[in-house]
Simulated assay, not measured.
Amino acid sequence: MADQSKKQDKNIELLIIGGGAAGLTAGIYGARAKLETLIIEDELVGGQIRDAYAIENYPGFSSVGGVELAERMQRQSLEAGAVIDDLDAVVSVKLSAAEKIVETNKYRYHAKALIIAAGSKRRQLPIAEEEKFRGNGIHYCELCDGRFYEGKHIAVVGGGSAAVGAVQHLSNYAAKITLIHRSEKLRADQKSQQALMENEKVEILWNSEIKEALGNERLSGVIVENRLDGTRRQIELDGIFVYIGSVARTGIYKDYLTLDAEGNLVAGEDCKTDVEGVFVAGDVRSKRIRQLTTAVSDGTIAALMAEEYIRQR
């Protein structure tokens, strides 16, 4: 990490933290409003949509790959005039009506308005062996690691759209897929569920959880417990892909902004936080529905509200 005292100070009109769907949309609107707009992202631009094998509920596309859509959004944001600085993480913030200071590994930014679209990070499989087998049998990205399991038996953990979509992609490689879900019903849309049920490679273990991962240097199996009767069984398999939700990336803001019980930033439909000139967009905002379309909507509203705030000052 860079020496905090030697960082270069930079002034910016609109600073956006997060380069996912919400942040990129905010970048498009901010730049088109002729605001000096900078998007900072600590990972790959595109966020979680990059992990989607196929997106079939985004208007204008009957089906589009997550990576393709992310790259289209990134390109459109750049063409509008936004600047994107990826692989630079936020290390501290100081937020008030008078000043918005954001320090990253490389710079100290002074922004007139700030949009937080930091998104969330994947929840890790809650077993003792997770760290031991992470990247060596336990994975969180089917697009990245699915190809290593050609002809193998793998497990997918979860019951939402991400898990069911992962099964679809992993079916291109694996000989057998065991879907392990802690509930008795799936949360994915009905079309995706139907495709899952018709997939001959898939076996579903309902009301079940992984309690232990087995293996020496590499994963060789798991112990699965039925949540209803407590019975356990051992399953031999070669890999696990995990999709059990996400954790909001908001800890750095808790001293300045209000968080809900799940750690999301509290803001209304106008995306305004309780600090003047600070807005929040996307999955990191406290709300009931989290979809790609709602993230894009938040990005639009946050950017327009930020423009209005800057113009009024």
Rank of each mutant, 00 (worst) to 15 (best):
N172W: 05
R285D: 12
E99S: 15
E203H: 03
A128I: 06
Y149N: 10
T37E: 00
N199D: 04
R227F: 09
L219M: 08
V280Q: 08
D88H: 00
A97R: 13
E262K: 14
V242T: 11
A303Q: 00
G160P: 09
L125F: 10
F148I: 12
S208P: 03
A22E: 05
E56P: 04
K121D: 11
T37V: 00
K112D: 08
A70H: 02
V202P: 09
V67Q: 13
R232M: 15
I84L: 01
R75K: 07
R123G: 10
P59D: 09
A98D: 15
R227E: 13
V93S: 03
A98L: 09
I289F: 14
N199R: 00
I252P: 11
Q4V: 11
N172C: 07
N264M: 14
G277M: 14
Q168P: 06
E131Y: 11
S96A: 14
K106M: 08
A166G: 15
K6C: 00
R122Y: 07
L69M: 10
A21F: 07
S171R: 13
E41A: 00
G137D: 03
Y29H: 14
R218C: 11
D85N: 11
H110A: 03
G47R: 06
A267F: 02
G263P: 10
Q234M: 15
E236L: 01
Q312I: 12
H110W: 00
E36M: 04
D260W: 08
K34E: 08
S208G: 00
L125C: 07
V164I: 15
R32S: 06
G165K: 12
Q168R: 15
V167D: 01
V278N: 04
V275Y: 09
V202M: 08
I240Q: 05
K106H: 11
N226T: 06
P126M: 08
E276C: 11
T231L: 06
F148H: 13
R288P: 06
K132Y: 03
A113N: 05
A188Q: 14
E276P: 10
E198Y: 06
K34D: 09
G119N: 04
V280W: 07
E68Q: 15
D189R: 09
R249Q: 14
G81T: 10
G239C: 04
D85W: 09
T37Q: 00
D298P: 09
Q194E: 15
G146N: 01
A195L: 14
K94V: 11
A261K: 14
E79Q: 11
V224K: 13
R227S: 10
A54D: 01
R72M: 13
A163R: 04
N136G: 08
A26G: 08
Q4M: 07
V202I: 09
K121F: 06
D298H: 06
R285T: 09
D229I: 04
I116F: 05
G60P: 04
R233Y: 00
I180P: 12
A31E: 01
Y140M: 03
S161I: 11
L143Y: 05
R311L: 11
G146D: 02
G46K: 03
F241S: 06
